[in-house]
Design a protein around this nucleic acid. Structure first.
Length: 474
RNA sequence: GCUCCCGUCGUCUAGGGGUCUAGGACACCGCCCUUUCAAGGCGGCGGCACGGGUUCGAAUCCCGUCGGGAGCGCCA
């Protein structure tokens, strides 16, 4: 039987890094085994599910390059299926209607907790007679349906990443499978769907381990073969608790907005819980697919390290084909008001990607190319207070003026700059640094000759002249 | 409280009885390069949670302790 896996987010928020990693693992496994990757939207929580969230999640999955082969299936479009199966269980005596209210259950829960026993459903409605039911219904109570968990015994399964896992029935209370609003609960819908969708492997986060015995019970009740399970450890924040908003950005869309590349994101996520047989860490999507295997999944939780992501993103910015980085950078250039001249912008990318870590940073660094205004910030002005600065500017004007209307390459610009240095007769740094300040208004940036090539000699001369006038007027 | 999961450099990890003086990557520190910041090159710092076993031999196997995490919902 060919592999079929699914990613099943609930559309109650944006795709976060943990979900993205789960999706990635499923995707890689599907591609690796030439199986199918299915997208299923678990939207049975009507309160919190939104179509916006669903769209956002799909957009982020596409951005990451995790394209699904089937779906999206929505659980709210399949309620008849769940209802039918729930009724079957009731008829067979494996499930029963429960009339307890939320308040009553909460009360029981508190009480058990205070008594120091595991808070699970008491089974109060388990053995209701037909007349009891009628009476409760006449009170206007609407029933939920609970699964009847066997009294004694245990259930075990073999997890691909964790090995044999065992649970006692006595620790599991009768759990709701159909809510009083007629929609299935997670534990029920997953099983019905995974079975009907012929899912062969369930790759999901660690936090679902405790749900697995309940799901197994349902498989058993229907006489279905369960899929194989692979429970991946969770992604934690720096304080070792489950990664959440208070740890900083967790939404994939936020990383996109911050100027991260999807390829870097995928690669980094892969390393959070998976390692290659050799020491390699950088993989293209094709290589990931080629190398991925479930048996190299890590058992321990991983802390999300933005630092390494940043490094990796910078690495990808430098290694990826120029055109690809340029494509990704376009929105950032637009946002900052850069002129949309593709040839020129590609040169800008070629220069500025060398020393920045994100697209946003790269564009921010390149801002002096399109904006220049005096006076500079006071900390920058400090650098212009030396006597030799006017001398430097004059020498620059003299050397570059003959090239005012010419195309000057970076290498020619470099030759000319060396001429300026000679003319001033000071050390390179003494000459080039103030010149950098004057032309860019910043202390840092790419090599000056690159900068001059990018803005053109005419613009450079104008800037130098303006700074010179400004200094002399002072 | 109960159940379950997990403990190798600060972080991600390799390792699965001898080849471990524990390997790689990020971060950090230093040096080189240099026109600034980076990038790059070279080098350095740094870890098997603890205690008992088993064994000729344990990071690796077993037990316990401690620590961290998750679950215990008519959320998923």
């Amino acid at each position: 039987m060919s592999v079929r896996v699914r990613f099943a987010p609930s559309p109650t928020g944006y795709l976060h890094v943990g979900g993205a990693r789960t999706a990635l693992f499923n995707y890689l496994f599907a591609k690796k085994t030439k199986g199918a990757f299915i997208l299923r939207i678990e939207d049975t929580d009507r309160e919190r599910s939104t179509v916006e969230a669903e769209k956002a999640i799909m957009e982020d999955l596409r951005w990451l390059g995790l394209h699904w082969d089937e779906g999206p299936y929505r659980q709210t479009e399949r309620v008849d299926l769940y209802r039918k199966h729930a009724e079957e269980l009731v008829q067979r005596g494996l499930a029963y209607p429960c009339y307890c209210t939320e308040a009553e259950i909460e009360e029981m829960r508190e009480e058990m907790l205070s008594l120091g026993i595991a808070p699970k459903y008491s089974g109060r409605c388990r053995n209701l007679s037909e007349s009891d039911r009628k009476k409760l219904e006449s009170e206007g109570r609407v029933a939920a349906i609970r699964f009847k968990v066997p009294e004694g015994g245990e259930i075990s399964f073999k997890d691909i990443v964790r090995g044999e896992l065992k649970f006692r029935f006595s620790d599991i209370g009768d759990f709701v499978i159909m809510r009083s609003d007629g929609l299935p609960t997670y534990n029920f819908a997953v099983v019905i769907d995974d079975h009907h969708m012929n899912i062969t492997h369930v790759i999901r986060a660690d936090e679902h381990i405790a749900n697995t015995p309940k799901q197994l019970l349902i498989y058993q009740a229907f006489g279905w073969d369960p899929p194989q399970f692979a429970h991946v450890s969770m992604i934690l924040g720096p304080d070792r608790s489950k990664l959440s908003k208070r740890h900083g950005a967790v939404a994939i869309s936020q990383y996109r907005k911050d100027g991260y590349l999807p390829s870097a994101m995928d690669n980094y996520l892969l390393l959070l819980g998976w390692s290659s047989p050799d020491d390699r860490e950088i993989f293209s999507m094709d290589e990931m697919i080629e190398l991925f295997s479930l048996d190299r999944l890590s058992r321990n939780p991983a802390i999300f390290d933005i630092n390494k992501l940043r490094w990796m993103n910078g690495y990808y910015m430098r290694k990826l084909p120029l055109d690809e980085v340029y494509e990704q950078a376009i929105p950032f250039f637009l946002e900052k008001g850069f002129p949309m001249n593709a040839d020129w912008l590609k040169k800008v990318v070629a220069v500025y990607r060398e020393h920045t870590s994100t697209l946003r940073e790269m564009v921010e660094e390149a801002l002096p190319l399109i904006s220049f205004s005096l006076p500079f910030d006071s900390s920058i002005e400090e650098e212009l207070k030396f006597d030799h600065v006017t001398q430097v500017l004059k020498a620059f004007l003299e050397v570059f003026t003959p090239y005012k209307y010419k195309e000057v390459s970076a290498s020619l610009a470099w030759e000319l700059l060396k001429g300026v240095v000679d003319r001033v007769g000071l050390k390179r740094g003494k000459v080039l640094f103030p010149l950098r300040i004057a032309l860019t208004g910043r202390k840092t940036g790419p090599e000056l000759y690159h900068f001059i090539e990018l803005i053109g000699v005419k613009e450079a001369l104008e800037r130098a002249q303006r700074v010179l006038d400004y200094l002399e007027r002072r």
